[in-house]
Design a binder for these strands. Structure first.
Lengths: 391, 391
DNA sequence: GAAACTTTGTTAGTAACCTTAACTAACAAA
DNA sequence: TTTGTTAGTTAAGGTTACTAACAAAGTTTC
């Protein structure tokens, strides 16, 4: 027999109403009880009693009187963003970035750790513990006031199990990350793919604020994408969504097990850099697309060709995603940032030639911080107003 | 200021509980009040009173006694699937198919109308009215007992507005279909893209039953896809999701405004048929891929090449979708049905070479009826247990 | 400057809904 | 016939939010 969720009870409706009040309070600061009644469509007495309860619990503060609108002055309220904290951590090659944030998602302190032996999973887990200690000390937060830790990892992560199921670049396949860290720290841990978290970061705090459906495309050593659908990050049936490095773009060739996908084999930063080495007299460590563009601008024909070919195929990747998902917005990140205005324009032109519904295009706005912002927000989303659910 | 939805009231919890009971009752027939209490996690008295209420309203029936499990015999209940009806209608080229169904989604009667002037939008709308009359007469349903009409149309539909925003094949661009039919018939109308409805049909009644994330791929005159994410049909920001005919697969060429996309220009049934004309001595009207395969099997080299090339590029389309969305299941439909076991196998092989997370592959199982099934279910989903929400 | 509104917030009583506890009904097993 | 179990009902009680009325603290009007 097939059952169902959520039996409607009197507790449930209270929880919903508390949640609604908190949400309104998070979205607009300096709001009175009367305002909340209007916003939530609850009666004034009901709002008053719930608010008083939450003031007792330390979730809300009274911050003084407001100006009269022709009657008694309102008592302004504020969500107590400092009531709890969250920690975000992201592995990036040989460094680990950590940050502690309040319930608003505002970063309080950052910390960075260089991993001496980048490929050692156990060591990496230990440095999370180390970084956490530093952040707690600096911020003065007690561990009991942390909601949890969000952790960004390369490869395909199994969020539910808390393990890594596919990680060609680090070799941490099968590592039970969540369990180990939770045991070591006694805090809830959420793991996720790094590109997913960057997507979440840009969606909540960057170029994607206010949109409901967007795609985030990242071109780096590999090529990946994150997908937000109906305001939710979509992770796929096996948490392998957005693995667009495996799209069939460019020459196919033979694929070796455990290797990169066709698209990234042809047009990742590493691949383009490799091609450039055959053409350019000198290849530095900066943005490869800028280096190629510089030579192209100076009239080097082969450079111009490589540039055009690369842009065209990146545009093809974008067009494929746009035609399939019809997002409102497409955020370009990683090496795509360096395309510049002309590059962006040529991609827009291609899209309008190719697909019927062209999404808005924006460059990512958070830079290096996208991943850690996302990690922070992944915890905030996993525990929606934590305290409200204690009822 | 930013407000919020759903003020939690005592009415809401009753509605939720009624809804839960109805859902359990829809999913399993022949269930007692005691069973429902277990399924919904409500108390037995609560279930009893809600059930009695709904029996009064005609939503539920008692269907007799069950067998004792060591005590008093249970009174078995059944959802009254005949309480309301829904109508589905689908335009397909020059014919319109209609069907009337009960709340279970089981088709009661079908009807088909040939459109004398297929491209005349007004005429088409009139035939919906005509078909509805026939179905009501045959089934004995009164119009007041219909929840609504689901209507499948080619092109990009604006579901909210009820208009058509892009329809190169019919030219019905901008037609306010919903408004006109609602005014003419006095019934709620839901319009949707035809491929979306086929997807919904297969998801609810065909190859996709039980899955939560799937992609439906249709190859016909055009190429399109439907996307189900987290048990919801995803329509895209501008309702243009799944327009995979515009993926960049095969030679690009110049795209003319209002024309087909690159993928479908190269590998739709019409495109492949065109290529076949240059190769095969005779091209009939049946499945084009079967015709090519027959010549290939008889040793004709060019036919074999065309077959392989076509399969390969269809597989590329599938791989692109799989790598981006990581669905559990991919349903193949339209001309893809005729690939047969060998074709399916070769596509599976390609996929496992190309992408890291290979979805299950199935052939569509509803054939011609997928669209109309979907139309029916689109109404059922838009009015979830209609009567329950009257509370 | 007093009277008449207005807005904010609280108090008291009520209605809606679910739950628990206890009961009747109906049946199986021994 | 007794004992135990399952199904369904009745009655009392607990939460929760709502309405109505009121107090507090302003502004506006004449």
């Amino acid at each position: 027999m097939i059952g169902r969720a959520q039996p409607g009870s009197t507790k449930l409706i209270k929880r919903m109403n508390r949640e609604n009040i908190l949400l309104s309070l998070k979205a607009n600061t300096g709001v009175s009880r009367a305002d909340l009644a209007k916003l939530t469509e609850l009666s004034r007495p009901c709002v008053s009693s719930l608010v008083d309860e939450m003031i007792q619990e330390g979730l809300i503060h009274e911050i003084g009187m407001g100006t009269s609108k022709g009657g008694r002055k309102p008592i302004l309220l504020e969500y107590n963003f400092a009531a709890f904290g969250v920690v975000g951590a992201v592995f990036e090659g040989s460094t680990m970035q950590l940050a502690i944030a309040d319930l608003k998602g505002d970063t309080l302190y950052r910390h960075q750790i260089s991993l001496s032996s980048p490929m050692d999973g156990e060591k990496a887990i230990e440095s999370v513990a180390e970084g956490l200690k530093v952040l707690l000390a600096r911020s003065g937060f007690d561990k009991s006031r942390l909601l949890g830790i969000g952790l960004g990892l390369p490869g395909i992560t199994r969020r539910r199990d808390g393990t890594i199921s596919y990680a060609p670049s680090t070799g941490w396949m099968g590592l039970p990350v969540r369990k180990e860290i939770e045991e070591k720290l006694g805090l809830p841990v959420i793991i996720d793919n790094d590109v997913n978290l960057m997507t979440l970061g840009e969606y909540r705090r960057g170029a994607g604020i206010g949109y409901s459906n967007l795609v985030y495309m990242y071109v780096g050593t590999g090529i990946g994408a994150g997908i937000v659908i109906d305001k939710q990050l979509y992770r796929g049936a096996r948490e392998a969504s957005g693995e667009i490095g495996y799209m069939m773009i460019g020459p196919i060739g033979k694929r070796l097990q455990g290797e990169f996908g066709v698209f990234e084999k042809n047009y990742s930063v590493s691949a383009v850099r490799e091609k450039a080495r055959y053409i350019l007299p000198y290849v530095g460590s900066g943005s490869i697309i800028r280096q190629i563009a510089d030579y192209a601008d100076r009239g080097m024909k082969e450079a111009r060709q490589l540039l055009d070919d690369t842009c065209k195929h990146w545009a093809i990747g974008i067009a494929n995603m746009a035609s399939m998902l019809d997002p409102e917005l497409l955020i370009l990140s990683g090496e795509l940032i360096h395309l510049g205005e002309e590059g962006l324009h040529s991609i827009k032109k291609s899209l309008s030639d190719w697909v019927p519904s062209v999404p808005e295009l924006k460059l990512a706005s958070l830079g290096e911080h996208a991943g850690i912002m996302g990690a922070i927000h992944s915890v905030l989303e996993a525990f929606p107003s934590e305290a409200a659910s204690r009822v």
